[in-house]
């Protein structure tokens, strides 16, 4: 899904630029057959060029019709937001709402991953970077604003008697050291470990928050979306897996971690440990359109949307205004 999204965004930014150029040349040259091509060229040449350019214009119009998000006024400013593929789908939605409210402004949301996003802000390729991991080392130079939190839930089959688990136990299970449920819930059954594929943001978060430098066992079953992990765990009484907190439903049971249930309250109090921030990054104190967009994302309206989409909104009132 996100892959498709990326392709679309790419197509958008490409066609948009081309479109602008084309339309500009249309305006200045008034699009007359004789004048579009080089005036000195022979009749045949210029008419074929005319056909060619008309074809191009039609193509671009078709492209613009296909990608409605590119159509917004070309006179407005454009804000490039790039980074974490975990944040991208949400940021896309926020940008859409923003552009609806502010016709003429363009917010271009791109993926690439947290590290790419951080690089993009540092080099100035993007106005706002998105990172779903904490900044480290030199990256801390950047101005960061928390816009939401994303939690990981450790899930098991609803029939599993286990209610609570420690982070150490989770780590041992995913390392492949604990292979049966016996020490955990008394059942002499083999554990089915379910994980996400290499490269996914959710796996990255789990690796960082739970595993540290250790490798997840090779014997783990691998699925390529939160939905399929949940599906497998909901069908296998012996399975354990991890998914985004917002996507937990009744078909699976989210375990308490070190005695803390993954509730919104526990996350805001930082008691539940498997939480990662969704960060917006800028090089300087945000100003202009970037500031407007960040303020908009932190507004009650969008924070409500954040909540509805399964993320944890940053607490209202004591909203972090960013820190150096």
């Amino acid at each position: 899904m996100s892959c498709q999204k990326q392709v679309r965004d790419y197509a958008c930014s490409g066609s948009e630029k081309k479109g602008e150029k084309r339309l500009l040349s249309m305006e200045t040259e008034e699009f007359k057959p004789g004048r579009v091509g080089a005036p000195s060229a022979g009749q045949e040449n210029s008419s074929s060029f005319f056909h060619y350019s008309r074809f191009l214009v039609i193509m671009i119009l078709v492209l613009m019709a296909l990608f409605p998000s590119c159509r917004s006024g070309r006179s407005g400013h454009s804000l490039v937001v790039a980074g974490s593929t975990s944040i991208q789908p949400f940021a896309d939605k926020w940008a859409e709402v923003f552009m609806e409210k502010r016709p003429g402004e363009i917010v271009d949301v791109q993926g690439g991953g947290s590290s790419a996003g951080i690089q993009a802000v540092l080099t100035g390729a993007a106005h706002i970077g998105m990172s779903s991991r904490e900044l480290k080392g030199d990256e801390k130079e950047l101005y960061q604003i928390e816009v939401a939190h994303d939690g990981l839930a450790i899930i098991v089959h609803p029939s599993n008697p286990l209610e609570n688990i420690t982070i150490e136990q989770v780590k041992s299970i995913f390392l492949g050291e604990i292979t049966t449920w016996e020490t955990l819930n008394g059942q002499k059954k083999a554990i089915t470990v379910v994980v996400r594929e290499e490269g996914s943001g959710t796996r990255g978060a789990f690796q960082e928050l739970v595993m540290g430098k250790s490798r997840i066992t090779k014997k783990a079953i691998v699925q390529d979306s939160n939905g399929t992990v949940r599906e497998i765990v909901s069908r296998d009484p012996n399975a354990i897996g991890f998914i985004s907190l917002g996507l937990v439903n009744d078909s699976v049971k989210a375990l308490a971690l070190n005695g803390v249930k993954p509730t919104e309250e526990a996350i805001l109090k930082r008691e539940y440990k498997l939480v990662r921030p969704f960060l917006f990054l800028t090089r300087e104190t945000p100003s202009g359109l970037a500031k407007e967009f960040i303020d908009f994302v932190l507004s009650d309206e969008i924070q409500e949307l954040v909540h509805k989409e399964g993320l944890i909104p940053v607490r209202r009132g004591s909203r972090p205004e960013g820190s150096r």
């Binding site: 996100s2 892959c3 593929t85 690439g112 991953g113 790419a116 594929e197 290499e198 490269g199 996914s200 943001g201 014997k219 079953i221 691998v222 390529d224």
Partner: peptide, 19 residues
Amino acid sequence: LAPVRTLTSNIALEMAYAS
């Protein structure tokens, strides 16, 4: 009875975020 990954699945499974 053990899970297995094929070459084709390896590509399809991980291409979404691979860079």
